[in-house]
Write a protein that binds this DNA or RNA. Sequence first.
DNA 1: TATTGACTTAGAGTCGGCTCCAAGTTGTAA
DNA 2: TTACAACTTGGAGCCGACTCTAAGTCAATA
Lengths: 127, 127
Amino acid sequence: MKISEVSKKYDIPVDTLRYYEKAGLLPNIQKNASGIRDYSDSDCERVEFIKCMRSAGMPVERLSKYISLCLQGEDTTEERRNMLIQQRKELIEKRDAIQTTIDRLDYKIDIYYKILKEKENALHAKK
Amino acid sequence: MKISEVSKKYDIPVDTLRYYEKAGLLPNIQKNASGIRDYSDSDCERVEFIKCMRSAGMPVERLSKYISLCLQGEDTTEERRNMLIQQRKELIEKRDAIQTTIDRLDYKIDIYYKILKEKENALHAKK
DNA sequence: TATTGACTTAGAGTCGGCTCCAAGTTGTAA
DNA sequence: TTACAACTTGGAGCCGACTCTAAGTCAATA
């Protein structure tokens, strides 16, 4: 699969894919005789994984660390697991902070609704 | 209240508070004769609000827009409400993306657990 | 064969959000 | 009164994550 196809499939700019590769997130992408990248199925799966992690804000550098551990094989299983546990913890905190803000917005949106309704009523009363 | 006290109270660096002020998030902070900021109670409430919104990733520029509308008075109620509704929508998307990633991490963490347990069992069997 | 469009690289530029620095002023405690 | 910490300003610097540019190569079509 060519880079433009991967880009289209996962809706990630070509430049970003190359940037991820430089950053170590996509190691060992095969290239044909004339130097053109050919993404394998497992490369694509990795792209999809990266997309998911990035969408939640996992830093590129940490992702790079994780993927380099994957390449190192079985001995790193525990360390990788700990990384994921840590990342999970941070995401839960983030999700909860966002939820707190959503709740606050709900409250304020409701207050604004009441103000607008009052205004409207005042207008009707005048008529 | 002095800037250092506000900084301590809300755990926001002094430099960040001044940056927010420059960016229009904290308009009309009073200063005494020698030019030193004196945060009022309502300034503090605003700081707390900003902290909450920023913790969820609301951009400084949008926050600045919102606050400038607040200063413009009643006529902007509807526009402000719409801004909050839009922001709410984006936060829900963000929260859900994070949740999706958490679910995926849970799955992977479990898989790693099983791998580690298997390894351990293999070790016992050898003994 | 000439052109077009997709690919390659290295490296520079951009953006948001801080964070720090230099140089100067003020207020309090020894 | 002098030392020192906390305040002020304008502006520079930093970091993460892209995003773009320049200069060149290659394959396929008019």
